[in-house]
Simulated assay, not measured.
Amino acid sequence: MSYQEQLSPWVVHKLMPNLQQAAVARFRHRNDAEAYLKLISQMMPHMRFAITFDVHKKLCASSATGAQGVSQGAIAHS
């Protein structure tokens, strides 16, 4: 996750068939993401969108994998 993505954790995703999703826009504040979601939902009523909050976590260096993980939680759907 880039530094710019860390600064803007609120993400509006376009929900597609087969449980796929595409990031449409990133925002620093939740109310900005909600306003954008409302606008884009009015412009494209046949599409489905969701807001998520991306959390970037570094695992401890002593962990078995030493990998990085990303946790997303759906906040709002339209």
Rank of each mutant, 00 (worst) to 15 (best):
Q68E: 11
A64D: 13
R30L: 15
Q72R: 14
T65V: 03
A64H: 11
N31D: 05
A64L: 15
Q20G: 00
A25Y: 06
H46E: 12
R30P: 07
S41R: 04
S78N: 14
A64S: 15
K38A: 14
P45A: 01
F27C: 01
M47E: 11
S63R: 09
H77L: 15
A64Y: 14
Q42N: 09
A67K: 14
I51S: 06
S2R: 02
H46D: 13
Q4E: 08
Q68H: 07
F27G: 09
S2H: 04
C60A: 15
A67P: 00
S8C: 14
E5W: 02
A50V: 09
N18R: 15
T65C: 15
F27I: 03
H13E: 09
K58C: 07
I51T: 04
C60Q: 09
H56K: 07
H13F: 12
Q42W: 00
S8H: 10
S41E: 08
K38E: 09
Q42K: 13
M16F: 00
H13V: 08
P17A: 14
S62L: 15
A25Q: 08
L39T: 07
F53D: 00
V55M: 05
F53H: 08
H46M: 11
D54C: 10
A50E: 06
M44T: 03
Q68A: 14
R26K: 13
P17R: 14
V12H: 07
E5M: 13
T52C: 10
N31G: 01
K38I: 04
H46N: 13
G66H: 09
E34K: 11
